[in-house]
Computed example of a mutant assay.
Amino acid sequence: MGAMPIRKSLSPLHAKCEALIWAMECMKTLRISEVVFATDCSQLVKMVSTPTEWPAFTTHMEEFLRCKEFFHPFTIQHILKAQNTLADKLARGARNQPAAMVYVDSIPPRWLLNQEST
């Protein structure tokens, strides 16, 4: 449903912000407005809670605020990295792949289900 090639970001926080915006766009395309976004990045949660306090991310925050209007209410939560083991395992595995690809959908693909069991 949502696959996108990855481009190089200015920083890891920029990449996480871009990924959140992209995930929001995917959910908008699917017309799913009741979503709880989750991240293991506490800085990202702080950023979207107080977007005007992050001047280096002005462009990203403008785009985020436009996307946020679709979600009523908008919810993002911080998950400890220790509790996010599957996503962490997938991220480490993705670094070993020859091509970078990101995937978002409401139904997990078979390869993801197989990762859960290993």
Rank of each mutant, 00 (worst) to 15 (best):
12 P>V: 07
12 P>I: 03
13 L>C: 01
17 C>Y: 06
18 E>F: 08
19 A>T: 07
20 L>F: 03
21 I>N: 08
21 I>C: 07
22 W>I: 10
23 A>T: 11
23 A>Y: 05
24 M>Q: 04
24 M>H: 02
26 C>N: 07
27 M>I: 05
27 M>L: 07
27 M>Y: 00
28 K>N: 07
28 K>G: 10
29 T>I: 15
29 T>G: 15
29 T>S: 15
29 T>V: 14
31 R>T: 13
31 R>H: 12
32 I>C: 12
33 S>Y: 13
34 E>I: 12
34 E>P: 10
34 E>F: 12
36 V>P: 08
37 F>W: 04
37 F>D: 03
37 F>A: 02
38 A>L: 14
39 T>I: 02
39 T>L: 07
39 T>K: 05
39 T>E: 01
40 D>H: 00
40 D>P: 02
40 D>F: 02
41 C>T: 00
42 S>D: 14
44 L>N: 00
45 V>A: 06
45 V>D: 05
46 K>I: 08
46 K>F: 11
47 M>S: 02
47 M>H: 04
49 S>F: 01
50 T>Q: 14
51 P>Q: 04
51 P>T: 01
51 P>C: 05
51 P>H: 01
51 P>N: 05
53 E>N: 13
54 W>P: 05
54 W>Q: 06
55 P>E: 05
56 A>D: 13
57 F>E: 07
57 F>N: 02
57 F>Q: 01
59 T>H: 14
60 H>W: 11
60 H>E: 12
60 H>T: 04
61 M>E: 02
62 E>F: 10
62 E>V: 09
63 E>R: 14
64 F>C: 01
64 F>I: 04
65 L>Y: 08
66 R>V: 13
66 R>H: 12
68 K>S: 05
68 K>W: 03
68 K>R: 08
69 E>I: 13
70 F>K: 04
70 F>N: 06
71 F>Q: 00
72 H>G: 14
72 H>Y: 15
72 H>W: 15
72 H>P: 09
73 P>L: 09
73 P>V: 08
76 I>T: 00
76 I>N: 05
76 I>D: 06
78 H>F: 12
78 H>V: 06
79 I>D: 06
79 I>F: 04
79 I>H: 03
80 L>E: 12
80 L>M: 09
80 L>N: 11
80 L>Q: 09
81 K>F: 10
81 K>R: 15
81 K>P: 11
81 K>L: 10
84 N>L: 05
84 N>W: 03
85 T>K: 15
85 T>I: 13
86 L>Q: 06
86 L>D: 01
86 L>N: 04
86 L>I: 09
87 A>K: 02
88 D>G: 09
88 D>N: 10
88 D>Y: 09
89 K>N: 12
89 K>A: 15
90 L>W: 00
91 A>Q: 05
91 A>F: 06
92 R>N: 11
93 G>D: 14
94 A>N: 03
95 R>F: 09
96 N>C: 14
97 Q>V: 07
